[in-house]
Computed example of a mutant assay.
Amino acid sequence: MMIVPKFGLGTFRLNDQIVIDSVKTALDVGYRAIDTAQIYDNEAQVGQAIQESGIARDQLFLTTKIWVDHLNSEQLIPSLKQSLQKLRTDAVNLTLIHWPAPQKGIDIAAVMQLLLQAKQQGLTEHIGISNFNIAQTKTAIESIGQSHIATNQIELSPYLQNRTLVDFLKAQQIDVTSYMTLAYGKVLHDPVLQDIASEHQASTAQIALAWALQSGYAVIPSSTKREHLISNLKAQEIQLSQQDMQLIAALERNGREVDPAELAPEWD
């Protein structure tokens, strides 16, 4: 049973009125999970959009992520409280450590303890990690226990399938959340995905999202267009065959899109 909703809206790189419109439109067409982060600099706009949507807070699953500059005892919980103010809520549903940032000397075990305190204080319903490799995930588990780690949000797409890490997370019963599932749109022009899409009378974006969902991942694609938001949501209705899944498995090329040197771990 997944803690993280299988389908949500990502808000990375969306700001100002664009993110307000995207969130309101997404909520209007049926999305109920929204993913943001302190570094996106759009939490206040996301909060405004949710309030203006008129949808009750208890109907929504809201995720934010603690930025690396706040991963210390002085700033983690105060920064989360600031996020809650911006988001106009008493608590989020999920709070993640955004990056492990080994080059910055982040003490993962200590940070996870702080995050657990935030959960115990009622500031967040669930806690988890993002962009953690296997070794860092093990450190997090040793610090607070696997049962407290709801998800590891990682870059996954047909071009970056990260199976070693995914298999480890599944064995630990930690939900896998896929971001950048369309690889900045690169997979949309893939001939294999185009063939599968035409068989299913679907778009290549829907096929990539259906692949992730069928692999057991939660997805958080972003879009600013109503028709794309609706279309993405319909990926949940597509049932890919075993042959489709095998063809997509063969697209692996370790095509990582997001790998900031000062934040990223040594990938598995």
Rank of each mutant, 00 (worst) to 15 (best):
M1I: 13
V4F: 07
F7D: 09
L9M: 01
G10P: 01
G10W: 03
T11L: 10
F12V: 00
N15L: 14
I18C: 10
I18T: 10
I18A: 11
V19R: 04
D21E: 07
D21T: 11
S22L: 06
S22Y: 03
T25G: 13
L27Y: 06
D28A: 11
D28W: 15
V29P: 13
G30R: 04
R32N: 05
T36H: 05
I39D: 05
Y40F: 00
N42W: 08
V46D: 05
I50L: 10
S53H: 12
D58I: 11
F61L: 01
T63Y: 02
T63K: 07
V68M: 04
L71I: 02
P78E: 06
P78T: 02
P78L: 01
S79E: 02
Q82A: 14
S83E: 11
S83K: 06
L84P: 07
L84V: 02
L84A: 02
Q85S: 15
K86W: 08
K86N: 14
D90L: 06
A91H: 08
V92Y: 04
L94M: 04
L96K: 03
W99V: 03
W99R: 03
A101P: 04
A101T: 00
Q103F: 05
G105K: 03
G105D: 10
D107L: 03
D107G: 05
I108F: 03
A109D: 12
A110K: 14
L115W: 00
L116V: 05
K119N: 11
Q120C: 07
E125G: 14
G128E: 02
S130M: 09
S130R: 01
I134V: 08
I134K: 13
A135K: 12
T139A: 13
S143F: 10
G145T: 05
G145K: 09
T151K: 01
N152V: 04
S157P: 01
Q161P: 05
N162L: 13
N162V: 11
R163F: 12
V166N: 13
K170Q: 15
K170T: 14
K170P: 13
A171F: 14
A171E: 09
Q172D: 07
I174H: 04
V176S: 08
M180Q: 10
L182I: 09
Y184A: 15
Y184K: 15
G185H: 10
G185L: 04
V187Q: 02
L188S: 02
L188D: 05
L188Q: 00
P191G: 06
L193D: 06
D195S: 13
D195N: 10
D195M: 09
I196H: 00
A197P: 08
S198T: 10
E199N: 13
E199D: 13
E199M: 07
H200P: 00
Q201D: 11
Q201N: 10
T204G: 08
A205P: 08
A208C: 06
A208M: 01
A208R: 04
L213Q: 02
Q214W: 04
S215L: 13
Y217L: 13
A218I: 02
A218Q: 01
S222Y: 14
R226H: 11
R226A: 11
E227Y: 15
E227T: 14
E227L: 15
H228Q: 07
I230M: 15
N232S: 09
Q236I: 08
Q236Y: 03
Q236A: 15
Q239G: 12
Q239E: 11
L240R: 01
I248M: 06
A249T: 13
A249R: 12
A250G: 12
E252F: 05
R256W: 05
E257C: 12
V258H: 11
D259E: 10
A264G: 11
